[in-house]
Design a protein around this nucleic acid. Structure first.
Length: 113
DNA sequence: CGACTGACGCCGA
DNA sequence: CTCGGCGCCAGTC
């Protein structure tokens, strides 16, 4: 059974719009869990496919894809991001251009702040 | 109960 | 830019 924290992470992840990306740490922060980037990775790993979460839009703070180069996961993530118009060089996305910057209003409405 | 393990992050060398 | 080292914490063994 998923914990409260895990579900908050799923909620935040579902808000990331196509064409934009976020880091594990950023998602944790927005979910009210500062410093818990690793929990974000864990949450995504155990999220049911039925939730249809945009897991591919979540990267390391450096913009690097978290999966090992050459793995099927890394390839699929790269493909999906490109399909959304995101640029990727050597498994790295230029965060300066594509990082998600949520509006306060979005957070207030979607999360329970 | 302690040790180990991550789809991580930050800082210093 | 690369490496190490340390902090983080819920699971698993």
């Amino acid at each position: 059974m998923a914990t409260e924290s895990i579900q908050r992470i799923w909620k935040v992840a579902s808000l990331i719009p196509a064409g934009r990306v976020a880091s594990y740490g950023q998602v944790a922060d927005l979910a009210g869990l500062p410093g818990r980037a690793r929990l974000t990775s864990k949450a995504l790993g155990q999220a049911p496919r039925s939730l249809n979460l945009p897991w591919h839009r979540i990267l390391r703070s450096s913009g690097q894809i978290a999966f090992a180069k050459g793995s099927t996961h890394a390839d699929e993530q790269q493909t999906r991001l490109r399909e959304e118009g995101i640029t990727i060089n050597n498994l790295r996305v230029p965060m300066k251009e594509f990082q998600w910057q949520p509006e306060m209003a979005t957070l207030v409405v979607e999360l329970d702040f």
